[in-house]
Design a protein around this nucleic acid. Structure first.
Length: 299
DNA sequence: CATATGTCCTGAGAGC
DNA sequence: TGCTCTCAGGACATAT
């Protein structure tokens, strides 16, 4: 399930398309129900035809293709979507394709960009000009790699929600999903059940610091490919960060920090939460920055 | 307004 | 073996 590190890896992986011109956009033959596309694929194709791709950006868990003429294609992979330059895992779940014409001397630039999605919950939407700001950016919080402790605290310090649940709210901060919420709270030494309005300034600081450490480390390993094997980078290769998860999907295992078999699984807002019952006590330890950095670089 | 729940979807794995 | 059931969870719509 692509979260910020996986989507950032997709973004980096498709950078070779920058500068290419879009020859055509279509939905390859697909037996499945079409994914959500706005406007229709016909309109999208007409708008994009002949235009140059200027940049590829990311906002939270979305990839944004910035296209000549103030057009933005926003791709949301959601649970199982992949943005690919290489052959997809299967033919039958291909959902969207851009046929490309490399510019100038870039002979080896890719000839197509694909959106593949097994479960079909992902979306592809086209926005023009200010629509991107009005309909996408304004609805999302600051990107999780850019947020600072003070603004996160200001957004949540009156909320009664559990910190882990609040971190999953994309209008608060964009990019954190179930896996990385668990990992970052473990690094920060904070109980995922802690109410936001009870956290101290020092704890908010640790949350933001741990967020950066975990997400950057995961990006460096090209994201997490879980046991279902769905997530792949733009070249259809597995990520590597699953080998470094400290608590996610490790219920009843030994905690890598305290050495006790204390990793627990609970359910919050219908999602699994994994944490160490010893290292993430509510009142909590207060590991300093050095400890966070040491525990990361040791891996 | 803040927060909670239901919904979409497929394939893996459990249990019989 | 093959069937049915449950589960995973991102984001949005709807309810409280």
């Amino acid at each position: 399930m692509p979260e910020l590190p996986e989507v950032e890896t997709m973004r980096r992986g498709v950078l070779p398309i920058v500068g290419s011109r879009i020859v055509a956009a279509d939905c390859p033959p697909c037996e499945r129900r079409p994914i959500l596309m706005r406007p229709s694929i016909r309109t999208i194709a007409r708008q994009l035809q002949g235009r140059r791709i200027e940049r590829v950006e990311r906002l939270g868990k979305r990839v944004i293709l910035c296209i000549e003429g103030e057009l933005s294609v926003v791709i949301e992979p959601r649970m199982t979507g992949l943005v690919l330059l290489a052959d997809p895992p299967t033919r039958e779940h291909l959902r969207f394709r851009l046929q490309l014409e490399p510019s100038g001397a870039a002979f080896d630039a890719p000839r197509e960009l694909l959106f593949w999605d097994r479960r079909g919950l992902g979306t592809v939407r086209l926005f023009k000009g200010a629509e991107l700001e009005q309909q996408v950016r304004s609805k999302l919080g600051q990107d999780a790699l850019l947020i600072d402790a003070e603004s996160l605290r200001e957004k949540l310090n009156r909320s009664r929600r559990a910190i882990k649940v609040a971190l999953l709210d994309q209008s608060v901060v964009a990019g954190i999903g179930n896996l990385y919420a668990a990992e970052l709270l473990f690094l920060a030494g904070i109980d995922p059940r802690s109410r936001c309005d009870q956290l101290t300034k020092a704890q908010w600081k640790r949350i933001v610091m741990a967020t950066r450490v975990v997400l950057e480390d995961a990006i460096a390993h090209e994201g997490s490919t879980l046991s279902d094997g769905t997530y792949r980078n733009a070249l259809n290769q597995s990520g590597g960060y699953q080998n470094y998860h400290r608590v996610y999907d490790r219920a009843d295992e030994i905690c890598p920090r305290c050495g006790e078999d204390s990793i627990r699984r609970i359910v919050q807002a219908q999602r699994s939460t994994f944490f160490c019952g010893v290292c993430q006590k509510k009142r909590g330890l207060h590991p300093d920055v050095a400890e966070i950095e040491v525990s990361t670089s040791l891996e």
